[in-house]
Design a protein around this nucleic acid. Structure first.
Lengths: 285, 285
DNA sequence: GGATATCTTGTAATTAAATTACAGATTGCG
DNA sequence: CGCAATCTGTAATTTAATTACAAGATATCC
């Protein structure tokens, strides 16, 4: 794991002084790698051995070794740490932080997603007689997006963000149908019900949700993303983006499985939009 | 330039002993970054000052600084490139590629987004009497998501993905109202109309769209993301994700502008969901 | 509530590492 | 061949990092 992430993750295990060190490093990582232990200690207002202990706690051999690891973390072009937005942040700060924490979230999602399950989900989807996407609240827009994608494949696809409609739809499902339930926490009661009902009616239920959740228990296949969410904001943010990317992945897998002549079809769907749009050439003159 | 490349390039400018050092480093770069100058000197069969001079020749401050640069070179060069999915890609390949190209897209979006405009947009939104989000096709789900976010702020917010409803809503807009039009290309005729109508009725129109597009021309403020889209897929993918992140940014700017007691309110909204969910503790037994 | 144990933190001493200064060696060139 | 320029290594110096230890803070147990 990236040292920067490691610092963020273990921030709770740090002592008071160690946290001071962590803060200084996270605030100016680039400066840190060019500083001596003395300079850093001064910046953090702690003693040199404290800095050294801090480095050791992060499983490095000492300060120089720590700097090496830090340099590598920064090199990736990824200062993708999940930095939290704070009260006093200006537009630059919060814009940068949100972009970065979203990218960090995608990075962890990438590492956690189980390719095997993805592949099986694609399998199931390509063989589906009908596909339904269900989500509530923030996940509803993810479901809509999924509908928009799969609709292009000329497959029977529906999407409901209304519990009653979802229920009715689930009751009517049958073998060969695929129901995709989307929920970050996986603890929304209504959605768990839907999953259970769909399963009782022999549909295959794919859950895009937390691995160890009540919803997961009701699903045939669970696609878990394990994205950390900034709870300070009281809004779903990164989790939703990761879900969308997963939808993209499933859709892509679907098109690849169907082969190249199927892609022609997609092109036709896209071209059909031409009439509703200003031509690029018309406009560029 | 990468230090490793630099070594290879300037191999002709090296003296005999310096070349010995270069050879050893190129042969085992990973070992080098964990060695002391003494160890490396021994491996290369030269003296310590020679190694130091070698480092200086490569425009580094000395041996430790050189190791830092070397560490950065070794840290997997450029992971987040926009790699395209290909016909013969397996699940691992396309999953990785989609995650990476999405992250790459966010990275460019981050660089292109104009902070000033973001700030002005937040300004406008915080003062809005009513906020409307309009999008069509794939952008409709982005609009829905935006509605879901701003709705929590207890502001009058609407969202329509139906042209007729959008039209009626736009006609009814008035000074103080803010209309947000979302379109990646900015060439959807209907949406351009909506923007024009809203403007004629004195609403402020924010466009989340391409900078140099017909839609942009109709807007008061243009938030451009300049995300490259993989046209091979014939589906909007990265652009949509970037738009969502932008929505997150606007929403975050909004809450920050409103101050900390407003955040309490958000917490209440989130807590209101508790009844609809399985308790974490209930489940974890 | 006080005494003891455990964990933090800093000061000072020690050790290790890197750099500099200098001198001997080598190479190139007239 | 000999002078000059450039390399290269040894030893001294400086700087940085680490360790050992003690004082202070905090938690725990009777």
């Amino acid at each position: 794991m990236n040292v920067l992430e490691k610092i963020v993750n273990s921030v709770n295990n740090f002592s008071k002084s160690e946290r001071k060190v962590a803060d200084v490093i996270l605030a100016n990582p680039q400066t840190t790698i060019h500083s001596s232990i003395a300079a850093l200690a001064k910046m953090a207002d702690v003693s040199e051995p404290t800095v050294n202990r801090f480095c050791r706690r992060l499983d490095t051999k000492g300060f120089p070794d720590f700097k090496l690891h830090l340099a590598q973390s920064l090199a990736n072009g990824t200062p993708y740490v999940n930095r939290h937005v704070e009260e006093e942040d200006g537009p630059e700060a919060y814009t940068a932080k949100i972009f970065e924490s979203t990218m960090a979230a995608l990075d962890t999602a990438r590492q956690h997603v189980d390719i095997n399950t993805v592949n099986r989900a694609v399998d199931v989807l390509t063989q589906a007689k009908k596909i339904s996407f269900f989500g509530l609240g923030a996940s509803a827009s993810v479901a809509h997006d999924a509908q928009n994608k799969f609709f292009r494949f000329n497959v029977p696809v529906v999407c409901f963000d209304d519990i009653v409609m979802q229920r009715m739809s689930a009751i009517n499902s049958a073998e060969g149908d695929v129901v995709v339930c989307i929920s970050h926490t996986g603890r929304t009661k209504n959605l768990c019900d839907i999953a259970a009902i769909a399963r009782e009616n022999d549909a295959t239920v794919i859950g895009i949700t937390a691995y160890d959740s009540p919803l997961a228990k009701e699903c045939t296949l669970v696609l878990s993303l394990d994205v950390p969410e900034d709870t300070d904001m009281y809004m779903p943010m990164a989790s939703r983006v990761a879900q969308l990317v997963l939808i993209d992945i499933l859709a892509t897998g679907f098109t690849l499985r169907r082969g190249s002549k199927f892609r022609e079809n997609l092109k036709k769907v896209k071209d059909s939009l031409r009439g509703s749009r200003f031509d690029k050439k018309d406009f560029n003159n």
